[in-house]
């Protein structure tokens, strides 16, 4: 990693200069929230947006895409070249999620569809200030030194521009005149003061210490049945989660049946058919079983398998669920704490 500086007034010129690296996607306002959208007018980018409704994952594994087409002769892979893209404005929580997704999609078998898109993607991270739903400090994902090509830390009238990869370095070399290579002691002090201020601003205090053991002991807790009664199985929690990659595979056929395509679509472990096998047997018929799976996966099992929780504390599920079943309420419930929904 290498650090330079860039003045705030130079940011748009910088984004213009790195156009050859791909379409720029950034957070823009939509209704009461934000969504990641392709941006051409840089002033539409919401620099203070904390979380987009759906995270970056839609750009690396879209909600629906064609895997291959088929006809009577067999299958044909797509020869369409995907566009290059630059994702702007990912905060440390999402960058941690991106690292988890990178790892997941190359573990055991490389997923070619993910890799294809990932290889065409540059990532520019952006510092943030927590709101009352952020709990990345509890998941220890509030800083990151990895997962980005460039990262901007907002220090008032300028950004520290962290260069995290050779691709990031290439981007900076497009416009050396816009950056200031000299980082001073004064800048360091500003940075440290900013960190202190940021850390003291986390309002949502969650404690995940020992969570795997608590989950283990809670396997038969009546809580799961209570939550199962309330759950609408709408899948909102999984759709907004940056570390939920599950998918379904559905063939679409043209009338006549001979030609069509195999498509991949987001699926959710909250949906009834998720664990149903041919013949109708369902390994997770009850909603309570599905909720247990989801939270065990996020808070316990992933820790056992990868040494870290699959939850990055982005806070999207808090506020996404109409009936307030989220990481916060579940963790507080299991730990016998007062639950604030």
């Amino acid at each position: 990693m290498r650090a330079v500086k860039i003045k705030k007034e130079n940011l748009f010129d910088f984004l213009e200069a790195i156009k050859p690296f791909g379409d720029l996607w950034g957070p823009v306002k939509s209704g009461d929230g934000y969504v990641l959208e392709k941006v051409t007018d840089y002033s539409n980018i919401e620099m203070s947006a904390l979380r987009t409704r759906i995270p970056f994952k839609k750009l690396l594994f879209p909600p629906k895409f064609t895997m291959f087409k088929f006809d009577e002769k067999g299958i044909r892979s797509s020869d369409e070249e995907l566009p290059r893209q630059v994702i702007f404005g990912l905060h440390p929580c999402d960058l941690h999620a991106l690292l988890i997704m990178d790892n997941f999609h190359s573990l055991h078998y490389v997923d070619p569809y993910y890799r294809e898109r990932r290889e065409r993607t540059a990532v520019i991270g952006l510092s943030c200030f927590p709101d009352d739903r952020c709990f990345c400090k509890a998941t220890n994902t509030h800083y990151t030194e990895k997962g980005f090509d460039l990262f901007l830390t907002d220090l008032g009238d300028f950004y520290i521009l962290w260069i995290g990869s050779s691709l990031g370095d290439d981007m900076v070399r497009e416009c050396p005149e816009l950056v200031d290579e000299e980082v001073t002691h004064d800048d360091l002090e500003k940075y440290i003061a900013w960190r202190k201020k940021r850390e003291s601003n986390f309002k949502l205090k969650l404690d995940f210490t020992g969570m795997p053991s608590i989950m283990e002991l809670s396997y038969d807790s009546p809580l799961w049945d209570e939550l199962g009664e309330k759950c609408l199985s709408c899948g909102a929690c999984t759709i907004v989660c940056p570390t939920c990659p599950c998918f379904n595979v559905i063939d679409e056929v043209d009338i006549g049946g001979g030609t069509g395509e195999r498509t991949r679509r987001w699926d959710s472990c909250m949906f009834r058919e998720y664990s149903m096998v041919a013949g109708g047997h369902n390994f997770r018929e009850a909603r309570s079983e599905r909720l247990k799976l989801r939270f065990t996966h996020k808070l316990q099992a992933f820790v056992g398998a990868f040494g870290e929780a699959a939850c990055v504390g982005c806070g999207r599920c808090i506020g996404a669920c109409p009936v307030d079943i989220d990481i916060q309420t579940v963790a507080q419930n299991l730990k016998g704490e007062e639950v604030k929904a």
Binding site: H105, L107, P245, Y274, S275, V277, F283, L293, F302
Partner: peptide
């Protein structure tokens, strides 16, 4: 054992057991 599977290569999630198997 039998489970629902959509990929066979540890990605689609349908055959997951106990959280991560």
């Amino acid at each position: 054992l039998e489970r629902r599977m959509k990929c066979g290569v540890g990605k689609c999630g349908h055959c997951i057991i106990g959280g991560y198997i």
